[in-house]
Nucleic acid binder design. Sequence first.
DNA 1: GTCTATAAAGGGATAGAC
DNA 2: GTCTATCCCTTTATAGAC
Lengths: 211, 211
Amino acid sequence: MSEADRQRQRSGLSAKADQILRAATQVFMDQGYGAASMDTVARRAGVSKATVYAHFSSKEQLFAAIVRGECRRHARAMAAPDIAASGVEDALYRIGENFLHFILTPRSLAIFRVVIAESPRFPELGRIFYESGPAIISGELSAHLAGMARAGRLDVDDPALAAEQFFGMLRGNLRLRCLLGEPADVSDAGIERAVRAAVAAFLRAYAPTAP
Amino acid sequence: MSEADRQRQRSGLSAKADQILRAATQVFMDQGYGAASMDTVARRAGVSKATVYAHFSSKEQLFAAIVRGECRRHARAMAAPDIAASGVEDALYRIGENFLHFILTPRSLAIFRVVIAESPRFPELGRIFYESGPAIISGELSAHLAGMARAGRLDVDDPALAAEQFFGMLRGNLRLRCLLGEPADVSDAGIERAVRAAVAAFLRAYAPTAP
DNA sequence: GTCTATAAAGGGATAGAC
DNA sequence: GTCTATCCCTTTATAGAC
C-alpha cells in the first residue's frame, strides 16, 4: 500500500473522490472559485461531471473539501521544528526560515489568495484557515517566547504580541509582492537574508537588559 | 460647484459615468469580481445595462476603472503626515497610527481582498495597487529612516528593510484576522496599543548604541 | 458509480427605437 | 446617451441508460 493510499484512507476518501479532489484543487487554486468551472474540474480529473457530483454535492461543497484539505497540509507543515535544545537565536532562525519558505510556496500563496477572496461568502473556511495556520504557528512561538522569558533569556512581557511582531517582520512585504506578481527575491539567499535581519532586530528589541 | 463635482472633473468622468462607477465600486467590493454582475451594477446605479456599457466597454474595463480609482484614494491617504519637525518616536507613532487606521478600514480591506484575488488575471492592476499603496508608504518611511540614520538618531543600515519590518510589526495578524472575519480589536485603543508596542520594539532594535 | 445528454438559469454584451 | 428587449453562451446541476 502506497503512502498516497494511506493518506487517502486517513482522510476517508475513495480513490475516485481523491482523484477528483486533487484535480479540483489544481483548478480552483489556479483560477479562483468564480472562474473555475465544474466542467474543467471533471475534464482535468478524467471523469464526467455527473461523477463529480456523485462525490461532491455542489461546487460549494467541493470548494470546502479543498480548503479543508489544504488546511490539514498547513497544520502539518506548521508543526514546529524541534528547537527544544536550541539557543534563542538558533531557534528563532529555524522557525523563521521554516515559516518564510512555507508561506512563499506557490501552493501556499494560491490557497491564501482564494481563502482571502472567498471568506466573506464562506466564513467557516476563513476560520478553519486561520486556526490551522496562523493561529497555530503564532501560538507555538508565543509559548516558546514565554518559556524563554521565564528562563530569563528574553525580556518579553506580551509573548503573543511579540510573536506576531516577529512573523510580521519576517513577512515584510514579501508575501504581498508575491501575491501581486511584483518582483521579489524568494531565493534561498533572499529568504535567509530576511530571516537574519528579522532575528537580529527581534533580539535587539527583546534581549534582556543587563541586570 | 460641489467638492464632489470638482473631484469628478479632475478624474475626467461625466456625472453619469461617475454615478455608475460609484455604484459599481460598492458592488464589486461587496461581492468580488466573479460574483458581481453587470445587472446588479446597473440596478444599483439606477440606469440600464446598456448605459453602463455606453460608459465602460466591458466588465473588465469597469473593474480596472474601479481599482484605479481606489488606488488614487490610497495614494492620497498615504501622503505622509507632516513629521518633519518631530522626534523619532513621535514620527514613528504618527506614521504607524495613520497606517493601521487606514489599512483596517472596511473599504481598504475590500479593495485589498479583490485585488489579491484578481491580480493573476489582471497583473497590471496588481502593479498599480502596489505602486500606489505599499510602495509609496514603505519608500517614504525608508527615506525618513535614512535621514535619521544620517543624523545619528537611528542605527539603521538598510532603511528599506527596516521600514518593511516596522510596517510588518504594526500589522502583525491584525489585517489577516479582519480579512478572515476573525475577531480582532480594531478599536482606537486596540490600534494605539499595537502602535505603541511596534514603536517601542523598533526603537529598541534600532536605537543608536552609545558611542 | 459512471456515462451521455439535457434541463434551467444567469450573465455578458448588443440591436434598435427614441 | 439612454432605454427595452433580446441574443448567445456558459455554468450549475440532474435525468436516465448501463
